[in-house]
Each structure stands twice: as C-alpha cells, then as structure tokens.
Amino acid sequence: MDEPRFLAVGDGALCVEFGDKIDPRINAEVGALFRALCGKPIRGVRECVPTFRSLTVLFDPAVLTARRLEQKIQKRLATAQNTRDAAKRVFVIPVCYAPVFGEDMPQVSAHTGLAPDEIIKRHCGTDYLIYMLGFLPGFAYLGGLDPALHTPRLQNPRTKIPAGAVGIGGEQTGIYPIASPGGWQLIGRTPVRPYDPARIPPILFAAGDYIRFRAIDEAEYTRLELLQSQGETIWEVRNGFLHDFAIGRLAQHGAG
C-alpha cells in the first residue's frame, strides 16, 4: 500500500488520501483510520468524513493545527494498518420486489435480458460494501453490484421517489433513505428506514458495513412495516470477520 497523502483543507480540516481509485482495499484503509479515530479520539478532532478513498478530518483550529494533526495521524496509521481482523457487520435488509414497488423491473429485465426472478436472485446474492454515506442522510454508496444487472438510469428522472425505494442506477444499487427526486430504475422497496431522526442512532449503518438484500412478499412487507411503526427492529445484523470473505471477489465488482 502506498503512503497516504495529507492534503490541506483550510484552517479546520485535513484530508488523508489513501489512493486515487475505487477499490475495496483502499476503502478498508480509510475505514481502519476512521474507526481508530472514532474509537480513541484525538483531542480537538470534531468529526471525520470517510469516502471511497480518503478521510477528511475536521478539527477545532483553537486546539489543533493541521501540522500537529498530521503527526498524530501518522502515529495512529502505524497501528491501524492491520485491518484483516476487523469485524464485518452485515445488515440484512428485507426488500419486496413485487411489481407494485418495482415499477422499472420490466425495463431492467429488458435491458439485462434476465427474468425478474433471476434479477432478484442475483440482487440478493451479494454482500454489498458500503464505501461511504453521502448525497442524502444515510444514502449508502454500495460496491459489488453484479455486472449483469448494470442498467442505465432513467432518461427522465422522477421528481419524487419514496423513502425505502430500492433501485439500480448504472453500476450502482442502493436505497433511497428519504423521499427525493432521482433517476434510478426502481426494482423494489424496503420497509426499513435507513434514516429516522427520532431513532438512536438516526442512521442505521456506517461506511465499512455491508448490506445484503433479502426478498420478501407483499404480505411480509405490510407486516414488517407495521412492526417498524411500533418501534421493532425489522432488519437483521450478522457479525463476522473481514478475513471470512474473499477481497478479490469484491474487487472485481468494486470498480462501479
């Protein structure tokens, strides 16, 4: 792994850049430093923004300087390098792919040449790495979509997509955490709310976690939606270790 670059971000932040491509190994470096800084905070650090290949660290300039922070992070990196034993957290998210929610399934089917059942099977067949959160509160940039499912975005984006909609946009797949405009092909919907300001924590998952989709029918969707409104947990979290999975396999799909 190359040495990370420290880039100036004004008087109150520092960017630690681990590479210049979308790669799960580079992203794992970002995650390792992010967790190290969250687990044992440096005095004066306000928060960190992990992205595909860099960590932006915001600090209070009254307490810390970029120069001092760089030295402290260098020290942390020496101990944060080994990420192989880090816990792997997989959120299993129920998704209903029925036509009432998956409005664009016919287009995805036509584009990919796969039957809806095969699309669902493949969509549910991967642990998707959350490279980063951004764009909307709790919007997860996922890596690992089966290349056979890549489908271009809609030519005319919808003005309103409901919260929980699951779609495919080009090489990406994901969940709309709140109602928003959008151009992804909708293939289903989850009753899970990745973002709920009244819940602790308001955002379910973090960069470095994984998402796996599980197909449910409409009756189950209705039942889970009701349970969720009563404050029940309707997703499942599986814990494992990073070395349980083949990094190489992810890397093949990760370039999306």
Partner: peptide, 10 residues
C-alpha cells in the same frame, strides 16, 4: 474526481 469530503469553505 472520485467523490471525497466537502467542508463549508471548500
């Protein structure tokens, strides 16, 4: 660029 962090002032 490959998307990365933005802060007020960027």
């Amino acid at each position: 660029i490959i998307s990365d962090g933005i802060v007020p002032g960027s």
